[in-house]
Design a protein around this nucleic acid. Structure first.
Length: 432
RNA sequence: GUGAGCGUAGCUCAACUGGCAGAGCACUCGGCUGUGGCCCGAGAGGUUGGGGGUUCAAGUCCCCUCGUUCACCCCA
C-alpha cells in the first residue's frame, strides 16, 4: 500500500491544521513579548553534532536516530531534537559577541525512530526556546513563566509544572556515589529493570513504577542533600523568583531528564489530559554545552514543547470554518451575479465561497454551504437582483440583515469581523 | 526492542458454534420547500489491511506480514 503515510508520521488535514496554526501563532506572539527571535536550521546535520551534544549514552543517540550516509559519503542525521543545531548555528555565525544574551526560538519537525503510540511519533514537531549567555536563575524562571503563560493562553487543560535540580558536576559525583551505595544494600528487593538502571544510570531507579520497589525508592537519598553551595543557591533563587511571580509549581526531587547535557535546573510540564506520554514540555539549563562543542564557556537554558501533545491536551476544538459568507444561486439566471458578489466580497477581505458550478442545484449548493460551516448565507435569486434588496442570514439563530447591493460588501465585512462569528478560521486576518 | 488488544463502506459499527458482507451517519441524483438542519424516493460506495494455508465453503479457524492502539522502555 503506497497510499499510506510512513509509520509514525501523519497528515495534518484542514480542520485540524487550524489548531496547529493557532498554537504556532500564539507561541510566536508570546515569545516575541519576551524578546525571542526565530531561528531556522536545517532538519539534518552531521551526525557528530548530536553525538557531541545530546550524548552518546542517551537512548536518542543509541537507538533512535534517523542516520544515513548521503551520496557524498557524509554521515548525516535527521535532527532528533532542536538544541544542538541551534548551538551549532550560534557558533558557526559567532552570534554571541561579548556578554550578549541571545534569545532564540524554533519551530519544526524532529525525528526519532521509536515505537509510535498516542502522543509519540517518529516525525513529531517541537517549539523550542534557547537563551544563551547568562547563568542567572532569573532566566530559568523567565522561560518557565513564558511557556506556562503560553500554554494557559491556549487553554491547555490540567497543567502541572514540575521543577528540580540536577546540580553541578561535584554535587552529582557525590550524590551518585551515595545513591549507588544505598541501592546496593537493597538489590534483592528491586526489580530486574532496577538492577539494570542501578548499573547504567542509578538516577533512573526513581522512575520505576513497580510497587515492590517503592519502599526502597522512598528511602533513597535525595540529590537535595548533596547540593554544593552554588547549586543550592541557584535552585533557591529560582524558587524565589517563581514564588514572587505567584507561580504554582511542585518540586519533584526525583526528576531526571534524559539528555546528558542538563545542569542545575530541570523542569517539565505535564497535562493530566494525556495518557502515559503526558510530558508537554521538557527543559532545563545546559551550562557547558557550548564549550563542549568547541565554543567559549557560554551558559544556556531552554525547553522544547511537543506540538502534537499540546494539541491533544487542548482537547476538542471547534471546527474551523472555510468561509464567513456562503453565496447560493437560486437558479441558473443568477449564477453570474453570485460569482460577481463572491468576487467583490473577497476583494474586500471577506472570506466568501459559493458552489454555483457545473449546474449544481440549489439544494446541492446548500449542502456545500453546510459543509463549509460558513455562518452566514446569502441567497441570490431573481427577486434580489430585481429589487436590489439582499438578505444575509445567519443559520445558527436565523438572524437576518437586509441591505442593498451597494451596501452588501460593507455589511458582510462588519459581520465577518464579529469575533463570535468565527472562532478559529479568521484569526490571522483580525490581528491588526 | 518487549508484551497485550484491534484492523469489515469516507466515519461509527453489525454479521449465532465457518454458509449469499449489512445498518446508521455522510455522499450523489430526484421529489417537497424563496433560503442549508425536516420529510419522501432512488443511487453510488468493499479484493473484509496484505500474503499464504485448512475446508465443498473463510470476515470468522491456523501461519506470516503490515498498520494501529495501550503499556513497558524512553521522551516532546
Amino acid at each position: 500500500m503506497t497510499t499510506k503515510a510512513i509509520r509514525g508520521t501523519q497528515d495534518i488535514l484542514p480542520g485540524q491544521v487550524e489548531i496547529w496554526q493557532r498554537v504556532e501563532e500564539s507561541a510566536r506572539r508570546t515569545f516575541a513579548l519576551y524578546g525571542f527571535q526565530e531561528m531556522r536550521t536545517p532538519i539534518f546535520e552531521h551526525t557528530a553534532v548530536f553525538l557531541k551534544t545530546t550524548g552518546e549514552s542517551t537512548d536518542i543517540v543509541q537507538k533512535q536516530m534517523y542516520r544515513f550516509t548521503d551520496m557524498g559519503g557524509n554521515d548525516l542525521t535527521l535532527r532528533p531534537e532542536g538544541t544542538p543545531p541551534v548551538i551549532r548555528a550560534y557558533l558557526e555565525h559567532q552570534l554571541g559577541q561579548g556578554r550578549s544574551i541571545e534569545r532564540y526560538y524554533y519551530i519544526g519537525p524532529m525525528f526519532r525512530y521509536e515505537r509510535p503510540q498516542q502522543g509519540r511519533y517518529r516525525q513529531f514537531h517541537q517549539i523550542g526556546v534557547e537563551v544563551l549567555g547568562t547563568e542567572s536563575a532569573h532566566l530559568d524562571a523567565e522561560v518557565i513563566e513564558m511557556v506556562m503563560r503560553w500554554l494557559r493562553d491556549l487553554g491547555v487543560r490540567d497543567l502541572r509544572l514540575l521543577i528540580n535540580t540536577v546540580a553541578d558536576e561535584p554535587s552529582r559525583v557525590a550524590y551518585r556515589k551515595a545513591l549507588v551505595r544505598a541501592q546496593a544494600g537493597h538489590l534483592d528487593e528491586l526489580c530486574s529493570d532496577c538492577h539494570r538502571r542501578h548499573r547504567e544510570n542509578p538516577l533512573r531507579v526513581f522512575d520505576c513504577k513497580v510497587d515492590t520497589c517503592q519502599p526502597v525508592i522512598a528511602q533513597l537519598p535525595s540529590i537535595h542533600d548533596y547540593l554544593s553551595d552554588t547549586s543550592a543557591s541557584h535552585f533557591e533563587r529560582l524558587r524565589e523568583v517563581l514564588g514572587s511571580w505567584g507561580m504554582d509549581y511542585e518540586i519533584d526531587p526525583r526528576m531526571v531528564r534524559g539528555l546528558d547535557y542538563y545542569r542545575e535546573t530541570v523542569f517539565e510540564i505535564t497535562s493530566g489530559a494525556l495518557g502515559a506520554q503526558d510530558s508537554l514540555v521538557g527543559g532545563g539549563r545546559y551550562d557547558g554545552l557550548v564549550a563542549q562543542m568547541g565554543g567559549r564557556e557560554v551558559p544556556g537554558v531552554g525547553f522544547a514543547a511537543g506540538i502534537e501533545r499540546i494539541v491533544l491536551a487542548m482537547g476538542g476544538q471547534p471546527e474551523a470554518t472555510a468561509a464567513d459568507v456562503f453565496v447560493v444561486a437560486f437558479d441558473d439566471s443568477t449564477v453570474s451575479a453570485v460569482h460577481t458578489i463572491v468576487h467583490q466580497l473577497r476583494a474586500a477581505g471577506v472570506r466568501a465561497l459559493c458552489a454555483a458550478y457545473d449546474g449544481r442545484s440549489k439544494k446541492a449548493q446548500g449542502s456545500a454551504a453546510r459543509r463549509s460551516r460558513a455562518p452566514w448565507q446569502l441567497v441570490v435569486g431573481p427577486d434580489e437582483v430585481q429589487s436590489d434588496r439582499y438578505t444575509l442570514r445567519r443559520l445558527a439563530d436565523d438572524r437576518r440583515l437586509e441591505c442593498s447591493g451597494e451596501a452588501l460588501v460593507s455589511t458582510a465585512l462588519s459581520l465577518a469581523n464579529e469575533p463570535a462569528a468565527n472562532p478559529t478560521g479568521s484569526e490571522s486576518r483580525n490581528d491588526g
